[in-house]
């Protein structure tokens, strides 16, 4: 199974959403601030449900928030 690397633009999107705080995003998505911190730092990959909730909060499609890269064949998919 190919390994994938998931990255996100949450920090940038928070900045463009009137510098939304991590706590505000956490409250809007129903998780703890620590989980938002872990997602931003790439230490936790959220469930599909939470990923959609985050995208919905920023009013963006999912692929505008998260992107992934297949490490084995270096093929990047956005």
């Amino acid at each position: 199974m190919a390994k994938i690397n998931i990255t996100n633009n949450i920090r940038t999107l928070r900045f463009f959403a009137n510098e939304m705080t991590q706590q505000e995003l956490a409250e809007k998505t129903g998780v703890s601030r620590q989980t938002i911190v872990a997602i931003e730092n790439g230490k936790y990959f959220p469930s599909l449900e939470l990923a959609f909730m985050i995208a919905h909060t920023f009013e963006k499609p999912l692929d505008a928030v998260f992107s992934f890269e297949i490490i084995n064949d270096k093929k990047k998919k956005k």
């Binding site: 129903g30 998780v31 601030r33 620590q34 989980t35 872990a38 959220p46």
Partner: peptide, 11 residues
């Protein structure tokens, strides 16, 4: 500091 933070999917 939040004494009792929410328990979510990561926890």
């Amino acid at each position: 500091e939040d004494i009792d933070p929410i328990e979510d999917e990561r926890d």
